[in-house]
């Protein structure tokens, strides 16, 4: 469904992404995994042209995105990110309905869609619909953010650490909701994270980036069994190391 071909992004002399090629299949969730400055967010944003590549191309459904008007392209691709970016001067319903409104949906259809989405992201439509974003908790805001990304029934979603700023319990609940939603809608998604556990829980395949280069891409199982280098090995080993750390702490306390 998505093909990244020899993508490069330069800022002056700095190279953020170098010669990156990847394919995302229909219905698949691909995790872009890497540390800060690895180029994962830059890569994601080149898919819906929030960032224009210096070289290379992005194909969605076989069409080069550079040939489409950016706003038309983005209306067909859902986008959710860590800062959420809800419009503070609009109600929850107006926020969720923004892309359909831009596409010229009728009032009636739009209203039904908003209620449907609020239910989908497990918020009470009657209670939430007319609120302002600042009247919601962080977790509720990101649920609205996901609903907004899904509003115009995109088949493709881009997510940039959407649950990164939430407390662990809320994050866990939202991850579970997202897994369910994706399954129900059969979405294709690219998901940026630096959280190894999140990558393992959500990803069909994981692409590991290091300093702007693609190091390895494969299923979690492949990466665990045949890490391409030490960096991948250490990265994949993180959850186990953390679990061992917790175990040994508990043992020392005599619990």
């Amino acid at each position: 469904m998505i093909e990244l071909q020899y993508l490069t992004k330069r800022y002056g002399n700095q190279v953020a992404v170098r010669d990156l090629s990847l394919t995302v299949d229909e219905g698949e969730l691909l995790v872009l995994l890497g540390g800060s400055g690895s180029g994962k967010t830059t890569t994601l944003k080149m898919i819906n042209r929030l960032i224009e590549p210096s070289a290379g191309s992005v194909l969605v459904d076989g069409r080069d995105v550079a040939e489409l008007a950016p706003h038309d392209l983005r209306r067909r691709i859902g986008y959710a990110f860590q800062q959420v970016g809800l419009f503070p001067h609009m109600t929850v319903a107006e926020n969720i309905g923004i892309t359909p409104a831009l596409l010229g949906w009728t009032e009636d259809k739009l209203r039904r869609r908003v209620d449907e989405l609020l239910a989908l992201v497990e918020l009470d439509p009657d209670e939430t619909r007319d609120r302002r974003p600042d009247q919601l908790s962080g977790g509720q805001q990101q649920r609205v953010g996901v609903a907004r990304a899904l509003a115009a029934r995109p088949r493709l979603m881009l997510l940039d650490e959407p649950f990164g700023a939430l407390d662990p319990l809320t994050r866990h609940r939202l991850q579970e909701s997202f897994v369910r939603i994706r399954r129900e809608l059969g979405l294709t998604a690219v998901f940026v994270t630096h959280d190894m556990v999140e990558a393992l829980v959500l990803g069909d395949r994981i692409a590991v980036l290091q300093a702007g280069r693609l190091v390895q891409v494969g299923t979690p199982r492949t990466l665990m069994r045949e890490p391409a280098n030490d960096y991948v090995r250490q990265l994949l080993d993180t959850p186990r190391r953390e679990a061992q750390l917790v175990e040994s702490l508990l043992a020392r306390e005599g619990l």
Binding site: N48, L50, P70, H71, D72, L73, R74, R75, R76, Y79, F81, Q83, V84, G85, L86, F87, P88, I98, T99, L102, L103, R148, A152
Partner: peptide, 20 residues
């Protein structure tokens, strides 16, 4: 972040200005 959201939901530059 709000500016980025305005672009990402598919607003044209004129819509970003007028609506956000």
């Amino acid at each position: 972040a709000i500016r980025e959201a305005a672009r990402a939901v598919g607003m044209t530059p004129a819509q970003q200005l007028r609506r956000v």
